[in-house]
Design a protein around this nucleic acid. Structure first.
Lengths: 189, 189
DNA sequence: CGCACCTATTCAATTAGTTGAGTATAGGGG
DNA sequence: CCCCTATACTCAACTAATTGAATAGGTGCG
């Protein structure tokens, strides 16, 4: 159970409300830890009960009030302790790969559609990451940032996300070509 | 819930027992769908109850008897239907990235250890995939297999796994270099 | 000859995650 | 003025996943 820790890590980058975290989890963090809003609210409450984060109500006139969360010293200690424990191997859940595994080579139409969709999805993700990256780099180049940039953790995880989507784009293109070539060969042969 | 479908897809590659599937899910399929043995046994029972797979007891003299599962025609139809439905976006759970996100640049020792561990893990995974690939290619080259190989679905998913681990190896190396360089600079400055 | 490990599975208990709806306020467009 | 969208949550019901252990015969090793 380390959604708790993913939340602590996200809040370590600056205080946020549940709603804001829900959005962060849909863009940046979503790349390596996915969660629904309901999960976030539930775990935020638990983290507060455990004294790892503290909440503060921010009154807003133009929209509903919100509860903004901050990591407490106890939470920071928990994050450090978490960092020292051995990490579980990464786990993936990718429906598209399950589908592709069982593709019928004689009827690849649905799979070609799915691969096209995946390609578009990855391009969208990458575009989002690229924007974030521009903001972080603020004119510097990557080598320079890696040497002395201030948010090295977030930059390296963003880098992982970018590499992952770049890989996906190249791979999905190969999948698409392979499936269409085979279809052509079949109908021609 | 598509462990059901991951199981159907795995069984579509040939009949297997729960125990054998548990091992497959620890090597090949684990790359895009992870599950514990308990999950497999539970879902195999459900799939059997739903008539999507059928079981056959294989008596063994030198070891405990086992139940070997095969996809039924109804199961094959379900797999095809699944292939036509839109896929959910991929979800990842990577503790290492959570840790790295919150790394303290002044105390990167634990993270350097974790990155080293990850690097070793990815190299191990890749070596396993490479062996599987050699067996599938059986002397042919990749282009040839993509054009006419018999198990195109499994090859393309294996390819995804290999690309993923190759990416991880390169990225983890950068992470390692970045963290150690920064440490050196700090202690030297 | 005894102990650890491998095959093959099952049981029980708990925690995590998903789905779908419901509540309330505010701003903008037609 | 009404509807749609966005903010900011909450509740309830359910399904999936994890953890830890139990069972039971067979093999290999010193």
């Amino acid at each position: 159970m380390s959604l708790r820790h993913a939340l602590l890590a996200a809040l370590a980058q600056g205080e946020a409300s549940g709603y804001e975290l829900a959005k962060r989890f849909d863009v940046g963090v979503a790349n390596f830890w996915s969660a629904t809003p309901q999960q976030l609210y539930r775990d935020l409450e638990r983290l507060e009960q455990d004294g790892l984060i503290s909440a503060r109500v921010v009154e807003q006139s133009k929209r509903p009030n919100k509860r903004v969360f901050t990591v407490t010293p106890a939470g920071q200690e928990e994050l450090r302790a978490f960092g020292r424990r051995p990490a579980k191997p990464p786990a993936m859940r990718d429906e598209f790969l399950v589908k592709l595994q069982a593709v019928d080579p004689d009827d690849p139409a649905a799979m070609i559609a799915a691969a096209t969709e995946r390609l578009a999805w990855s391009r969208g993700k990458l575009a989002g990451y690229d924007k974030l990256r521009e903001r972080m780099l603020a004119g510097r180049d990557e080598d320079e940032y890696l040497r002395a940039g201030e948010q090295i953790g977030p930059y390296l995880t963003l880098m992982a996300g970018r590499l992952y989507e770049q890989m996906n784009i190249r791979w999905a293109t190969t999948v698409l070509e392979t499936l269409t070539n085979r279809r052509t060969n079949r109908s021609a042969g």
